[in-house]
Amino acid sequence: MLDRIKSHVTKWWKVEAQVIQMLTDGEVDFAVGPGGRMTVVKRQGAQVTFDYNQGIVHGDSWVIPRGAKNKKNAMEFIAWYAANPKRHAEFSRHIPYGPLNTKAFNHMSDAEKAELPTAPENLKRQLSSDSEWWGKNLVKMEERWNAWLLR
């Protein structure tokens, strides 16, 4: 599949802002890109639209390094934030990243839900990126990818 489209691809983008810029400038007609930013420029009136169909969901984590000085505060913050679905909903209102706490959707309108990747309707049409697999294979895949790109 990738071999077939390779020669028609204008740019294999690296930075998320890049692909949004290319779409809004009309540099490309079609792209794979980050849903959050896509929603933002769409709201700002850019002539783009997107669909979560066959999207890949990436999760982010709160991480506390071992031996951190402020471990207690950090844990408290996570408890304060993660345990409160209202805060998740509020966060997603400011930037359209999907909440992981599914109760957050109880505090949202249907229109708000439709924009978010982790809303149940959207989530079932996507697949999740397997962080563990990528953790093991990133270096190998990156090498294979570069070799393929340069060929």
């Binding site: 390779k6 691809v9 740019k11 294999w12 990133l138 270096v139 990156e142 570069n146 790109l149 340069l150």
Partner: peptide
């Protein structure tokens, strides 16, 4: 796609991997 220079490869190794 094919215009990757050494600086880009080095950056990739550092920032991605």
């Amino acid at each position: 796609r094919t215009d990757m220079m050494m600086g880009q490869l080095i950056e990739l190794e550092v920032s991605q991997l």
